[in-house]
Simulated scan of single mutants.
Amino acid sequence: MTEQILDAAEHLFSRDGLYGVTLKDVAERVGVHHTLVNYYFKDKQTLFDAVIARRAGVTSSARMQALDAYEQASGGKPTVEGALRAFLDTDLDLYSRGGEAWKNYGALGALMSNTRHGATLMDQHFDPVVLRLVGLLKQAMPDAADEDIFWGYHFVTGALMLTLARTGRIDRLSGGLCRSDDYEAVKARMATFMAAGFKAVCKPRKGTRKASG
């Protein structure tokens, strides 16, 4: 029953956000009385946090393993694009191959990333893997200013969240050439695009000489 409740809540929260859903809405989607939802989850906030936590460990663990494997494969000499691919492609694969439930989770993550409480949950669940990526980017660009690397990550995660939101806007703008749910098309382009941005923006710290390449 807990999984059914979480699935229903995930679907509704991904569509209407935390404040647009009630426990009664969740109960109706499951087909039970709302008191049963209250039995498992004392309030809506507790349910929302449980929905986020359920898949956060999966995606964080997968990306951490990919980053570790990439660093080992690179012989301690990572590239910007290689590090981004380990981080982004691994996550996009989960949403591409995990079915509608994972797509709902991605949309929910996009919604929550723009709220104060959501940002707190992001800190709690995703900081270690993000800082692991930042560490690899610093290895790849040892002369870059730290603030430029963090701004670069900020822009990367913004693009990822917009992608996971699946708003359909790019579908309409492109006249159907692009689809919001075409994660394979995103995967083929995003890391390369973002790597070029990092290289263009990142500047040597004072007192250092920018490395060639």
Rank of each mutant, 00 (worst) to 15 (best):
M112C: 07
Y40C: 03
A83E: 03
F193I: 07
R169E: 14
V21A: 01
N114I: 05
T59P: 03
I52E: 05
F150N: 07
A83I: 02
A69I: 00
L177W: 14
Y40R: 05
T59Y: 10
A101F: 08
T157P: 01
Y39W: 11
T90P: 13
A211S: 11
L137V: 04
R116K: 09
N114V: 08
L12G: 01
A144F: 03
F193T: 12
L36F: 11
G213N: 10
A9L: 03
K138R: 15
T120Y: 12
M122R: 12
A66K: 03
T90E: 09
G175D: 09
L177S: 12
S96L: 15
F13C: 00
K210L: 06
A62H: 12
G99K: 04
I5F: 12
R85K: 15
D91K: 12
G158Q: 03
A145D: 08
K103H: 09
A196Q: 11
L177N: 08
E147Y: 11
R172H: 13
R179N: 08
D89F: 04
D68A: 05
T59V: 15
G57F: 10
C202T: 01
R132E: 10
Y105G: 06
L12C: 03
E28F: 04
T192C: 04
L177Q: 13
Y70G: 02
G109M: 12
L67V: 06
D123G: 07
G207P: 02
D146M: 04
A107C: 13
T120C: 06
D148C: 00
R132W: 01
R55H: 13
M112F: 07
I52D: 05
K138W: 01
